[in-house]
């Protein structure tokens, strides 16, 4: 069986990729996608630890299910905000949306 740390390294790499995307992309939709990648990385971690350390309690899987719920809510509200901004400013480039910047 694949050792636990394989999963943890994959999850760490996925999280780093998502963090890079969230920091470096200009398009707000790409940033939302990167955040989804980071949530996925956290989920891999949760399920891997559940499987290897405590597989007879289902808490780990329930945790992962709640991450799904939060991810779905986040995607819906985030994309609605992006569409509203696009409608009023005709842009989804985060640098151009600086109305609140002093």
């Amino acid at each position: 069986m694949v050792p636990l740390w394989f999963y943890l390294v994959v999850s760490a790499a996925l999280f780093a990729i998502g963090a890079y995307g969230a920091l470096a992309r200009r398009n707000a939709i790409a940033i939302v996608m990167s955040v989804e990648l980071m949530l996925n990385a956290a989920n891999i971690n949760l399920v891997a630890f559940w499987r290897y350390l405590n597989p007879f309690e289902i808490n780990g899987q329930i945790f992962a299910a709640f991450v799904f719920i939060v991810a779905a809510a986040e995607a819906a509200v985030g994309l609605a905000l992006i569409i509203a901004i696009y409608r009023s400013r005709q842009t989804v480039i985060v640098e151009d949306v600086n109305m609140l910047k002093w």
Binding site: R25, R26, I29, A30, I83, Y86, V94
Partner: peptide
């Protein structure tokens, strides 16, 4: 969301 903001798809610079 990408289709609704389609004008933004072909950006020259995708990274800041």
């Amino acid at each position: 969301a990408i289709m609704l903001t389609r004008r933004m798809m072909g950006l020259e610079e995708t990274q800041n």
